[in-house]
């Protein structure tokens, strides 16, 4: 399964739906993570906050390919996109192991294939380097075997996804 998270206008949904099985809506109308870990310890892979991200861990966790299209913010995702990632830590379990010679959580849905990130908006060279590093870290941390990062000069480049 292929899932897309994007913070573009809704008019792009039609085009993007041809390229994936599901789009997770980034409208910012959801709460930020409160850091309670109940999605690990109380009701696994579910958030206690009953908004559109209540079960987002299951949606992301069950997809072997996650595509993120995001505006650049200082060399990372835009806030509403990052909000979704923060609310989806239920894709991991609370148990830890070594992965890539560091401590990480075991994956609830097994290792997934690919994390692809497409970033747009102004980006300095330093931000580009940081973004690539962030995605490398995320792929290891969240349990993706491969990752890719593409800078979109313009939204027209979406066709190549």
């Amino acid at each position: 399964m292929r899932v897309i998270i994007h913070d573009l206008e809704n008019k792009y949904n039609k085009l993007l739906l041809q390229k994936c099985d599901r789009i997770i809506v980034v409208d910012g109308k959801y709460s930020a993570c409160r850091g309670c870990f109940n999605c690990w310890t109380k009701h696994p892979a579910e958030c206690f906050i009953k908004d559109s991200l209540h079960e987002v861990s299951k949606e992301i966790g069950r997809a072997d390919e996650l595509i993120i299209i995001t505006e650049n913010y200082y060399g990372m995702y835009s806030p509403p996109v990052k909000n979704i990632l923060d609310r989806s830590i239920g894709i991991s379990t609370p148990m830890s192991i070594y992965r890539g010679k560091e401590m990480h959580h075991t994956t609830r849905y097994g290792m997934r294939e690919l994390l692809s990130v497409y970033a747009y908006g102004e980006m300095t060279d330093a931000e580009r380097e940081s973004f690539l590093f962030m995605i490398k870290r995320n792929a290891l941390n969240l349990g993706y075997k491969h990752y890719s990062f593409t800078y979109l000069e313009s939204i027209g480049g979406l066709g190549e996804i």
Binding site: A32, C33, G35, Y73, M76, Y77, S78, P79, P80, K82, N83, L85, D86, I89, M134, R137, N138, N141, L142
Partner: peptide
């Protein structure tokens, strides 16, 4: 998730 919490961003 390796970065800034969204509410801080």
């Amino acid at each position: 998730v390796d970065g800034v919490p969204s509410h801080v961003l």
